[in-house]
């Protein structure tokens, strides 16, 4: 292949960003799971001929592992909680790169990477804010649900459904916060604008294009949920507990495929959010150009 030919078939930076998002998420998962894997091993599973036995029908040895290894496993779960922030931190640069390449798809990767690093502090702030808002929304929903369950004079079914609705409302609010902050991320990328201005821009975008934004976000969320469900069912059908490395390889491929497709869905949503913000910027005098 000639040098010009190679340049002509340059891999789009956005595609690279999606791949990076997938790899970092998978790597972060692997790292986060490590303490628990060590815990399972230390609980006696490492003595098994194969860990297939833990997934065997009936789950006799898995239940036994949970029983006899409970103290070790609980300690491992505590260690996992310590590792989670590192796992999340690992995914942040990839997310930033995704937004940067979505914002300037023609820019070479060499330019996108430094820009991603520049917006990283803002993305950390957005991430913390999203986490806080999400927790607050879910906790409020849960609290209202508890109050409903305690006070409602309704019958049990209606009472439970009302409580579930409150909980669901909390989750929807958390999702709404996530959507708004994605719009803010998209707004912050072009000029590394301050947090508050980015939030104002996201707010303006929502006022102007609430339905497209919410629809796109809901579509992406629904598609992700469906994908995960299909993956779970597929893994079940592959019966990893049975003999044969091929089954395990198939499950690995299935799960990695799910993670890759989740990254694609995330990428599509980021493109959508970027376009919505950009449309607003073009019609709003004084707004940052995208």
């Amino acid at each position: 292949m000639t040098k010009s030919g190679a340049r002509g078939h340059r891999v789009p930076p956005f595609f690279v960003a999606v791949l990076t998002a997938y790899f970092t998420r998978a790597a972060a998962g692997a790292v986060t799971a490590l303490p628990l894997v060590f815990g399972v091993a230390a609980s006696g599973a490492e003595r098994l001929e194969s860990d297939r036995a833990l997934f065997a029908p009936g789950a006799l040895l898995l239940v036994e592992l949970l029983r006899t290894g409970a103290p070790t496993l609980l300690a491992s779960a505590g260690s996992t909680l310590v590792v989670v922030p590192f796992g999340l931190a690992l995914t942040l640069p990839a997310t930033a790169l995704l937004f940067v390449t979505a914002n300037t798809p023609e820019a070479p990767l060499g330019q996108a990477l430094p820009r991603a690093l520049r917006v990283l502090p803002a993305f950390v702030a957005f991430g913390l804010l999203e986490l806080a808002l999400g927790v607050v929304a879910v906790v409020i929903g849960a609290l209202v649900a508890v109050v409903v369950l305690a006070l409602s004079p309704l019958g049990a079914l209606a009472e439970d459904l009302l409580a579930l609705s409150c909980l669901a409302a909390g989750l929807v609010l958390a999702a709404a916060a996530g959507m708004a902050l994605d719009l803010a991320r998209a707004a912050a990328v072009p000029s590394a604008m301050p947090l508050r201005r980015a939030l104002r821009s996201a707010s303006a975008t929502l006022r102007r294009a609430l339905a497209p934004a919410a629809g796109g976000y809901a579509l992406a969320t629904g598609a992700s949920a469906l994908l995960v469900a299909v993956g779970a069912r597929g893994a079940e059908l592959l019966e990893v507990e049975r003999d044969g490395a091929a089954r395990w390889v198939a499950v690995v491929a299935l799960h990695q495929g799910v993670l890759a497709l989740l990254a694609v869905i995330q990428g599509l949503w980021v493109l959508r959010a970027t376009a919505l913000v950009a449309a607003g910027a073009q019609t709003t005098p004084g707004s940052p150009r995208t």
């Binding site: 692997a30 490590l34 894997v37 997934f55 395990w248 499950v251 799960h255």
Partner: peptide, 13 residues
């Protein structure tokens, strides 16, 4: 424990 690690890593991701 390859299967355990794979399953837990996937759920963690």
């Amino acid at each position: 424990l390859p299967r355990v690690h794979e399953r837990l890593a996937y759920w963690a991701a």
